[in-house]
Amino acid sequence: MTESVDMNIFLWIVAGLLAAAFLAAGLTKLTQDRRKLIANPNMAWTQDFSARTIKLIGTAETLGALGLILPGAFDIAPILVPLAATGLAVIMIGAIITHARRKEPQAIAINAVLLILAVPVAIFRFGPNSF
């Protein structure tokens, strides 16, 4: 029983950290003009994508962040939690590919950490630690 409670707490903490990171990243992409994003050295990759695609990525990140927390917190369609984590993991795989093509190792490392954090949430919220 304690092991299950400990895993649940761990998954909530990881989901909370992921949600904060993806909410910030998603809202930045949604609220900033593409030219402003391109001017930011950490967001130079945006020059490879249309404004519409950047908004789509920002929307997916924002919805994923909300999907990590709200369904579990309100016990409404909790299957959305592992689905959100899976979706964010897929986004991070795409981000890693994009940054690898651009030879941006620091960004790859950040995306890899987010991917590594999203995978256990996706796996364990589908399994025995689902809500």
Rank of each mutant, 00 (worst) to 15 (best):
K29F: 01
R102Y: 03
L18M: 12
L27F: 11
L56N: 06
I110L: 12
G26V: 00
N8D: 15
I96P: 04
L66V: 14
L27T: 10
A39F: 10
W12N: 11
P78Y: 05
K103V: 09
E104G: 02
S4W: 11
D6E: 14
F74P: 04
A15I: 06
A20W: 12
V90W: 05
D6G: 10
V81Y: 01
R35A: 15
T86V: 10
W45K: 04
I76F: 15
P105S: 08
T62Q: 01
A25V: 00
N129M: 08
A85P: 02
M43D: 14
K55M: 03
I91G: 00
G64V: 08
G94S: 05
F131N: 11
P128D: 15
Q47F: 09
A107P: 04
L114R: 04
A118Y: 02
A118I: 06
L80Y: 05
Q106K: 12
P105G: 04
L83I: 11
D48G: 04
L30Y: 00
P82A: 08
N111E: 13
L17I: 13
G64P: 01
L66Y: 06
T98Q: 13
T53A: 14
T98P: 10
Q47S: 15
G127D: 08
A60W: 09
T2S: 15
R52L: 11
M1Y: 08
A15Q: 07
L23F: 14
A21D: 12
Q32T: 08
Q47W: 07
A85C: 05
L66N: 06
V81D: 00
K36R: 14
N40T: 14
S4K: 13
M43E: 15
T62P: 00
G67Q: 09
I76Y: 13
G16C: 03
P82Y: 06
I54H: 00
V121D: 02
A84E: 04
P82D: 06
P105L: 06
G87T: 07
F126Q: 10
A19I: 01
P78D: 09
N42E: 14
F74V: 10
G127S: 15
I13E: 05
A21S: 13
V5P: 03
L88R: 02
P78E: 08
D33N: 12
I96Q: 03
V121C: 03
A77Y: 12
M43N: 12
I79S: 11
P128Q: 14
L18W: 04
I79L: 14
I110A: 09
